[in-house]
């Protein structure tokens, strides 16, 4: 059981790209995915990419020395400014294709 096994606990998944020498707020370009609107296939794919991202993020030190990374936040509440219930950092240049697609294209790469 991983912390991303069951997405039904969450309502929203938000991904930003952060860090880097520039670290300007305009470059974060957040994308939000509404979990309820995702089909079960999409939810499974999302879980898969989050687990892959977690595996890679754990081996690295995302951000260090101005390296950019993806920050993925999972929220239980529907809106508002609450802090995320789970979060995950994945180094950009080692990120799985499915994590990159979330941010670059706003798309859940199918399995």
């Amino acid at each position: 059981m991983t912390r991303f096994e069951d997405l039904s606990r969450f309502t929203r998944v938000c991904i930003t790209r952060e860090g880097g020498l520039v670290a300007a707020p305009g470059l974060m370009r957040p994308r939000t995915f509404d979990v309820v609107e995702c089909s079960s296939d999409e939810q499974n794919a999302l879980c898969h990419w989050l687990n892959e991202g977690e595996r890679i993020g754990r081996e690295a030190s995302p951000g260090r020395g101005d390296q950019r990374y993806f920050r993925i936040c999972l929220y239980k509440d529907r809106d508002g400014e609450a802090s995320p219930d789970e979060e995950l950092n994945v180094p950009e240049d080692a990120a799985p294709a499915g994590v990159k697609a979330l941010w670059e294209e706003g798309r859940i790469e199918p399995l």
Binding site: E18, V22, A23, A24, P25, G63
Partner: peptide, 19 residues
């Protein structure tokens, strides 16, 4: 780019988990 978010004083210290 957005707006430069840097503070110059502890009174404006930014508490964030971002970056």
């Amino acid at each position: 780019l957005g707006k430069d978010p840097q503070p110059a004083h502890m009174d404006q210290f930014v508490n964030t988990r971002s970056d």
